[in-house]
Amino acid sequence: MSATATATAQAQTSLSEKQSRILEYLRENADTQTYFKSRLIGDALDMSAKEVGTNMPAIENGDFEVDVEKWGYSSSTTWKVTS
């Protein structure tokens, strides 16, 4: 396993179950979509928008293969996600 893969695996183990689910959702959809609303992520993962918003900073501040940036707020926080 490469050093990058090892670091990513270690960072993922420090995520909660909800954070891991959100990260996996973003990874699966980042190639076809750039902007994600907390409300819509929550709908897809059976979470509230508040749960998504509370857990996103761990992903935003972590070192994963997706970059997450809080982008805007209108009816739900919007996140810009790039791979």
Rank of each mutant, 00 (worst) to 15 (best):
S16F: 01
S83G: 12
T32R: 12
T8K: 10
L23M: 07
Y73G: 02
S48W: 06
D63V: 12
V66L: 05
N55H: 11
A5C: 01
F36L: 09
K18N: 05
T54G: 05
E65S: 07
T6L: 12
L26C: 05
V81A: 07
Q33R: 15
S14C: 05
S83C: 02
N29Y: 08
Q10I: 13
E51G: 01
T54I: 11
V81R: 03
T78F: 03
K80S: 14
R27S: 01
N61M: 13
L26M: 06
D31F: 09
Q33W: 11
E51F: 02
S2W: 05
D63R: 12
D46K: 14
S14W: 00
T78V: 15
F64S: 07
L15N: 04
S48V: 03
K80Y: 07
D67R: 12
S83M: 05
S48G: 11
V52P: 02
V66W: 07
Q33T: 07
S16N: 04
S20H: 05
L26F: 04
S76D: 11
E17Y: 07
S75Q: 15
S75E: 14
L15W: 02
T4I: 10
V68A: 04
D31S: 13
K37A: 13
G72D: 14
L23Y: 01
T34V: 08
A44S: 15
E65N: 15
D67N: 11
L15H: 05
W71R: 06
S38C: 08
E60M: 11
R27N: 12
